[in-house]
């Protein structure tokens, strides 16, 4: 028996639409599930108080601060390095063996699993450099982890800036560096920012690497050398050790909302970038 090509197509396309529908249903289910269970417990006092009895009671203020410190510092370190790398690759050199080596490094780094970053950060930053389990060790480890993302997105953004802009700038007598600062980086800024915002999201979500480098202290970090537990790790410990399910859901809700906000911001920046440089 022979099935007509039109029927085959109808069945195949129907099957693929079903797969797509399942995927988006899963996405919505995960978000709705966490928020429905967690949002009722997210109160002002939950956000502003310190936890007591291992997180069974009280709030998550030290974890919010710890997350902002670790993730913020990571991006603060990685962004200038990543953008400078992208500027070097696009504006200051020709494609050759050296750019191939730099790109190979970034590609390989992007493939390294977060637990390996954690092991490395633990033995290098915490032990060899004597930083201990601290905000600083955690953020430097994360900085290395998000560096490839920032390099790649910045490079793409810079390459999208029309070549004519550069020629005009040179024509007006600017040096290469002036051209990079006033023309290239300014035009590419929304695109570069997209990569930075996504890296911030990744730093906030990361758990394995932070667990081995920033530690899991519950108190408020007083300096960069203090250990601090991030939101993602706090959520993991609360749920895994069954300390408090309501507080686990609430912590996860805060995480999810932060991720949603960052993704929206990245999306908005990207649209602005496309509108600006788009042909």
């Amino acid at each position: 028996m022979k099935v007509s090509p039109a029927t085959t197509q109808r069945v195949a396309v129907g099957f693929m639409w079903t797969l797509a529908a399942i995927t988006f249903a899963v996405l919505i289910f995960i978000l709705a599930f966490i928020l429905a269970h967690g949002l009722p417990h997210v109160t002002w006092s939950f956000l502003t108080e310190s936890p007591s009895s291992m997180g069974r009671e009280g709030g998550i203020f030290p974890m919010i601060l710890g997350t902002l410190l670790v993730a913020g510092l990571a991006v603060l370190v990685a962004a200038p390095i990543g953008v400078a790398t992208a500027v070097y690759l696009t504006e200051y050199t020709r494609e050759g063996r050296l750019t191939a080596v730099i790109r190979f490094g970034a590609d390989c780094l992007a493939g390294v699993p977060s637990i390996i970053f954690g092991l490395f950060g633990f033995v290098f930053f915490a032990i060899t450099l004597g930083m201990g389990l601290s905000v600083l060790s955690g953020s430097l480890t994360l900085a290395l982890m998000v560096l490839p993302t920032i390099i790649r997105t910045s490079e793409e953004a810079i390459r999208a800036v029309p070549y004519a802009y550069r020629e005009v700038s040179f024509g007006l007598g600017s040096t290469r560096w002036q051209m990079v600062i006033t023309v290239v980086l300014r035009s590419a800024l929304p695109g570069i920012s997209t990569g930075i915002v996504l890296s911030l999201g990744r730093s906030i979500s990361e758990t394995a690497a932070v667990m081995l480098t920033a530690g899991s202290a519950l108190r408020l970090p007083r300096s960069l050398f203090d250990s601090s537990r991030t939101l993602a790790l706090h959520f993991y410990i609360l749920s895994r050790e069954g300390i408090s399910m309501p507080n686990a859901y609430a912590t996860a809700s805060v995480l999810i909302i932060a991720i949603l906000a960052l993704n929206l911001l990245a999306y908005w920046l990207m649209r602005r970038f496309v509108a600006k440089v788009g042909r």
Binding site: L27, F235, S239, I259
Partner: peptide, 14 residues
């Protein structure tokens, strides 16, 4: 892209 942004602990938990 949002699916890629969800923390792995959240996937594990759900």
């Amino acid at each position: 892209e949002l699916l890629a942004g969800i923390p792995s602990v959240v996937y594990g938990f759900v």
